[in-house]
Amino acid sequence: MHTDAANFVSYRFSTRDLPERIRIPAWREHFGRCVVHADIEPLSDIPLQADASLQSVQGLRTLALKGTSMRFMRLQANLADGDDSVGVIFCAPGRSQLSQRGRDVELRAGDAIAILHSEPASVTYVDGLQFGLAVPREALELRVANLESLVMRPIGHRTEAFRLFSVYLRSILKARALTAPRLRHTVVTHIHDLVALALGECPALGESSASAVVAARHDAALDYITIHFQDPGLSVQTVARCQGISPRYLQRLMASSGTSFTERLNELRLQRALKLLTESHAGRQRISDIALAVGFSDVSHFNRLFRTRFGDSPRGVRLARKEAD
């Protein structure tokens, strides 16, 4: 499956429901030779288990793999497919071993590396979850100098560029953005830009106006807010400092999505409060305790916001739930 696929294609393969005797030949033939164009060698003493999910659009392929240990070998015969893309392989978590151009590299949780699909390579999946993506070589050569020198060199996962790239990738996969035709081209372009920045180990990106960086920083900020919204002290200043940007830049990022920092924060807190109020054991908690638990320090303010958002008071919502039960 090539990176120039015109439309969105999704492919899933699992050995879960296959008889043990046909798992290996089915995996090798249908997934190995027909989908990823590689020979596969199982390495475990236990019966083969494999779950793989592949998505492909023009300019991008993604692959998620989990199962028993195995080796993928892209041999000289496999190169006849003409795939000239650059693969970026992540371990999150787990371990993998890669070989290409006479170099052997072991990846552990959080590590990533780039390989060339146009040259023989071996990827040994040991355990955990392995994720990979492939982008056209031409797209990266337009964005980064001396691409060949960056192959088989571990990507620094502590760099800001790699962190932003990882956050953005998780965000678009979770939102299934590749399935939306109107978003697809923008998302793929952003990924090309962010891969290039990560491969080149770009220094601190600062408050860049580049579209890909803005999108990745926006997703990183939302990710941080979603994790920490229950902290009553969470503020624009706190989030900006943790993201290495100014409060003003963060406010511009938030405004670009049509909502302010305060609106986003309040919505997360109110949705969490609604869930707590309507759970089966909700009557055990005082409303004031729920307000404090979701991050509001002023119960009266919480009550006003809640009524405005849901059309009823917290007490009214709780009573309605009890009556419904």
Rank of each mutant, 00 (worst) to 15 (best):
A221H: 12
A175M: 08
Q55V: 00
D193M: 05
D127W: 01
R184Y: 01
I46R: 15
L60I: 06
F302Q: 06
E119P: 01
F8Q: 01
G200D: 11
A121G: 02
A52S: 11
F72G: 04
D325A: 13
V213L: 08
F229M: 01
S166M: 10
A180Q: 14
A255D: 11
F165I: 02
H37V: 09
A77C: 01
D4W: 06
A324Y: 02
A50N: 07
V239R: 12
R307I: 00
R74N: 02
Q97T: 03
M1K: 10
S256I: 04
D219G: 00
L147F: 04
A80W: 03
Q97R: 11
A320W: 07
S171K: 09
Q285H: 14
T259L: 08
D312R: 13
L183Y: 09
R158E: 14
P181V: 07
I24S: 11
S257K: 13
Y249G: 01
F131S: 14
D219E: 08
P203Q: 10
R241F: 02
R304L: 15
L253I: 06
S122T: 13
T124M: 12
I115E: 05
D219L: 00
P247E: 05
L43G: 06
Q251L: 12
R176T: 02
R158N: 12
A210F: 09
I245S: 06
L107T: 12
Q130I: 10
D223E: 13
Q243M: 15
A77I: 02
D39L: 12
S300H: 11
S69A: 15
G156M: 00
L199K: 05
L265G: 06
V317F: 07
R315C: 09
T179K: 09
L276C: 00
A139K: 10
V123I: 15
I191L: 15
E29G: 14
G59C: 03
Q271R: 14
Y249A: 03
R103L: 11
L194Y: 04
R307K: 08
V187A: 05
L173N: 10
Y125C: 14
P247H: 06
A134M: 14
Y224E: 08
A26P: 00
Q49N: 08
L129M: 10
R284G: 15
S313C: 02
E160S: 02
P42H: 07
L60H: 02
S122E: 14
A282I: 04
F296E: 04
F229E: 01
G311P: 03
A291C: 09
R318C: 01
L270D: 06
I40N: 09
A180M: 10
A77Q: 12
A145W: 01
S211R: 14
A92K: 10
S297I: 05
I191R: 02
L199Y: 04
V236H: 07
L173C: 04
P47E: 02
L164T: 07
F31T: 04
P232Y: 05
S297M: 07
R21L: 07
